[in-house]
């Protein structure tokens, strides 16, 4: 769900705000649901939420830009989270990250040209015992090494083509 479909998607946005009784205290939860649906926060959706919750749009933007979980730009088909928490760090997460950056030819917070991958870092995924952790679309890959990066990435590129 990306691009133009969003503009017609008001019923879904209304359903989301309704789920939280249009209470402004649940703004973060509402934005999370939008983020999960579209992969980012479309401008039109935020306008609608502002209307529904009866709060200024700027308040929504201040929340949307404060928290890491939100993105105002569309994301790629797969989102990669490289954990850079302490436990992963001491086991070589930086090297895994630079390998992924090299392989995909993008930097952190960027999306590959073919819109297949978006690369993100996270400060802890809470699966520290298995570090370094790379999470792709919510699935954890533990004990990552630079040598394993290629095969893990490949699995996801073929998913799209096949």
């Amino acid at each position: 769900m990306q691009g133009e479909t969003v503009f017609k998607d008001y019923p879904a946005i209304d359903a989301i705000t309704k789920k939280y009784d249009e209470q402004k205290e649940f703004l973060i939860c509402i934005l999370q649901d939008l983020q999960a649906r579209y992969g980012y926060l479309p401008k039109e959706a935020l306008n609608r939420v502002a209307e529904k919750l009866d709060i200024p749009l700027i308040q929504i933007y201040s929340v949307a830009t404060f928290f890491k979980a939100f993105s105002l730009r569309p994301k790629g088909g797969h989102t990669i989270h490289v954990c850079l928490g302490t436990a992963c760090h001491v086991r070589g997460a930086e090297r895994v990250l630079s390998k992924i950056k090299r392989d995909l030819e993008i930097d952190v917070d960027e999306t590959t040209k073919d819109m297949n991958f978006t690369l993100k870092t996270v400060n802890c995924l809470g699966a520290c015992a298995l570090g370094p952790i790379v999470e792709i679309d919510g699935k954890c890959h533990g004990h990552m090494t630079t040598n394993k990066v290629e095969s893990v990435l490949k699995k996801h590129s073929s998913n799209i083509k096949g």
Binding site: C29, F67, A69, V122
Partner: peptide, 18 residues
Amino acid sequence: SRGGGAFVCGESTALMAS
């Protein structure tokens, strides 16, 4: 209530603001 991914929200007053 689900957090938005900000470390500072573990601090009590920041959490309440959120």
